[in-house]
């Protein structure tokens, strides 16, 4: 590659935590900066978006207002490979909890001057609006996965980012299953891996921040937990966390809610 590929890191509705994971890649950051032209990264540099093309665009955050949607369409049009990073971008984030509520009513209750607030009724993932080339899950994303994604992009391999359950990582790590050995309601069996089973390794149940894995049988797990005495309301809360709007979690929580 003669010129270094241009990297842009953009945000929509989000907390910046996923972008900060890149800043936190201390050991690898220099290598990344050497291999890529970091053309736009508002959190870490003062460079403005020059309106040019991006070989790789990382997009954090969900679509929460009209301005973000217009910005997103612009980024997509100027990017060859667009990767969404984090729970907000890939599922709508914690702010998607409003999708179950009346937004106008909440604005009236929460804000002193509701007319300042310009928002869509829903918080939705990037892939609902533009084609996405790859998704990096998590709240926040995992540093190792981010470096793997960037390396794979540069080298030309499929990123080793496995769409499997957290249990696979948990068992490889030799952690004791908190669901079976402690009865802790754990979403690991239905949650996308990538975190290294960090919660179960520290003795607590997974709360699904990487969102559902493929074929996530959320209703089947919920039915089992319910038979063990976990109340339906608790299950709904469990499924409606950082990735509540992801279809597999949304549908299962809706069924419990109605049920």
């Amino acid at each position: 590659m003669s010129a270094r590929p241009r990297l842009g890191i953009f945000k929509m509705a989000s907390c910046d935590g996923c972008q900060l994971q890149l800043v936190g890649c201390e050991d690898e950051l220099l290598a990344v900066a050497g291999a890529l032209d970091i053309a736009f990264f508002a959190v870490a540099t003062s460079k403005k978006d020059d309106g040019g093309r991006y070989d790789l665009a990382l997009v954090e955050g969900s679509v929460s207002n009209e301005e973000q949607l217009a910005h997103l369409l612009d980024i997509r049009a100027r990017s060859d490979f667009l990767v969404t990073i984090g729970a907000c971008a890939t599922s709508g984030g914690i702010q998607a909890l409003r999708n179950w509520r009346d937004v106008d009513e909440m604005i009236r209750v929460v804000y002193a001057t509701p007319s300042y607030i310009d928002t869509l009724a829903t918080s939705t993932p990037i892939a609902d609006h533009v084609p996405v080339d790859f998704e990096l899950r998590g709240c926040p994303i995992d540093k190792g996965q981010l470096v793997e994604l960037i390396t794979a992009f540069l080298v030309g391999r499929r990123p080793a980012i496995r769409d499997e359950s957290v249990c696979m990582e948990c068992k490889r790590a030799g952690a004791t299953c908190v669901l079976v050995a402690k009865g802790d309601p754990c979403l690991g069996p239905i949650t996308h891996a990538g975190c290294g089973a960090i919660c179960p390794r520290f003795g607590r149940g997974c709360y699904g921040c990487f969102g559902p894995k493929e074929r996530a049988a959320a209703s089947a797990l919920a039915a089992h937990l319910a038979s063990g005495g976990v109340p339906a309301e608790a299950l709904v809360r469990k499924l409606r966390g950082f990735t509540a709007w992801a279809p597999a979690f949304r549908d299962a929580s809706d069924a419990l809610d109605e049920g």
Binding site: A35, E164, S165, K171, G188
Partner: peptide, 26 residues
Amino acid sequence: LACGNCTSVCPTCFCSTSEHPSSIDG
């Protein structure tokens, strides 16, 4: 749940996969 716990704890299951990590320059 297709979670893979059974195969992970099974003492005879031997299926594996592989990855090709590299330095950023490859």
